[in-house]
Computed example of a mutant assay.
Amino acid sequence: MRFTHETLGQRVVFASGDAPAAVTAEVAALGATRVMLIAAPAEAALADRVGADLPVVVRHDEVVMHVPVEVAQRARQAAAEGSVDALVCVGGGSTTGLAKAVAMTTGVPIVAVPTTYAGSEATNVWGLTDGEIKTTGVDTRVLPRSVVYDASLMLSLPVEMSVASGLNALAHCVDSMWGPRVDPIDQALAGEGIRGLAAGLPAVASDPAGLEGREQTLYGAYLAAVAFASAGSGIHHKICHVLGGMFDLPHAQTHAVVLPHVLAFNAPFAPEAERRIAQAFASPTANEGLAALRRALGAPRALDDYGMPKDGIRRAVAPILAAVPGNNPAPLTEENLTALLRAAWEGSEPA
């Protein structure tokens, strides 16, 4: 057994029902006295609660999906004008992504308070979109210094969005099984992440007001993100980043649609990873386990439903081929990638 595993340095606080006090403590531990509070208008009420006892000097609410570069620049300017020494972001992946964009150029530390299961808060990965091109990278400055997980903040997240966001987290687990830097620790974390998500998401769907399902889903989403940060971005995420940036598709739903097609594509060429995924689902095969979960959740099915044009299949092939890591388990060609994208666009069964 020969591998090198790097663990990212981050404090993680699970504090159901106690986010305001936990966030205040994390900001105080940083010695920060001038906080920039980032939250989209839809999260304003939650941000009010979380930031009630913080020394907020800048309140910023321009949050846009996929973090366009011009939006990032305005946020950076607001941070500079306010001489902020800490960022507190309350929201999903787009909000966390905006905080990362500010941290990347300023070095200001982030305390992240997620309200979805996106997982961006536990990675050192950033993403910015310029026109139709979404660029991602890795930078230690963008890793939030602390994360406060409060499952009670998820109770207002509708079931439909919870399902999409949770399946996005599940995609982190699956991609981590064969990412470009994958090691056995990543696979162990990803397997436990799948188990947590497979237990938590049906509970959220059946009892949206229940805290236990939300906690299990958060737990799984966190493990998924930690595994993904180490293993690196595989074929699934390269596909979704290209499609999301090119056609402005909703992030979580895009991942939820593409996931079963990527799993079916790679599983025959990665038997050990397939066995681990199946075991985490407690299913005979990985594909059957994911399919059963998707049926139980009424998961998103077709990219066509979210605004991707049919001719987008042809347009996306070349940039995806250029982005996918060379060590992907299944050989990728223009022909089989086109077939995968067509099936995801139509919402047909994975081949």
Rank of each mutant, 00 (worst) to 15 (best):
D248E: 14
K238M: 12
K238G: 08
L293Y: 05
A264L: 10
W178Y: 15
R276F: 00
E215L: 10
T217H: 00
I194Q: 02
D18Q: 11
A44S: 13
G91T: 11
M36L: 11
V63R: 05
G200F: 01
A280T: 06
V64L: 07
R314Y: 08
L189A: 10
P250G: 04
A99C: 12
G31T: 08
A270Y: 07
A52N: 07
T254M: 08
L37W: 04
A339T: 15
A22E: 00
F281R: 02
A323T: 11
S176W: 04
G107D: 10
R74G: 09
A225Y: 04
S83N: 13
L341A: 13
N124S: 15
E192R: 15
A15N: 03
L201K: 00
A171Y: 01
Q187S: 10
V317R: 07
K134Y: 14
A80T: 13
L303W: 02
I133H: 14
L290R: 02
P109S: 09
L167D: 04
R295F: 02
R214N: 05
T136A: 12
V262H: 07
P158R: 12
A86K: 08
A316G: 08
D61Q: 14
V163P: 01
E212P: 00
A351R: 13
C173Q: 02
P268Q: 05
R11P: 00
V35W: 03
G196S: 05
D139T: 07
M1I: 11
D183R: 02
T96M: 14
S152H: 07
A169I: 02
D130R: 15
V258H: 03
D175G: 08
E334W: 10
T254Y: 06
V108I: 15
G91R: 09
T7P: 00
T105Q: 11
T129R: 15
S146L: 02
T116I: 13
L197H: 00
K238V: 10
S233Y: 03
E132L: 12
G244T: 07
P68W: 10
E346P: 08
H237G: 11
A15E: 03
D304I: 14
M161V: 13
A188I: 08
T140I: 14
G220Q: 02
I313P: 04
D150P: 03
Q279T: 13
V90K: 05
A264W: 06
A282C: 11
P180W: 04
R295G: 04
A302K: 08
L297E: 05
T95Y: 06
L37M: 10
P20Q: 10
P68D: 12
S283C: 06
P329F: 11
L189G: 01
T7F: 15
D186N: 14
V111R: 02
L46F: 04
I185H: 07
R276M: 11
R275G: 09
F247Q: 13
V317E: 08
Q10A: 12
R295E: 13
L8I: 15
G245D: 06
A351E: 12
G127T: 06
A296D: 13
F14S: 07
T4S: 14
D311R: 12
A19M: 06
A252E: 07
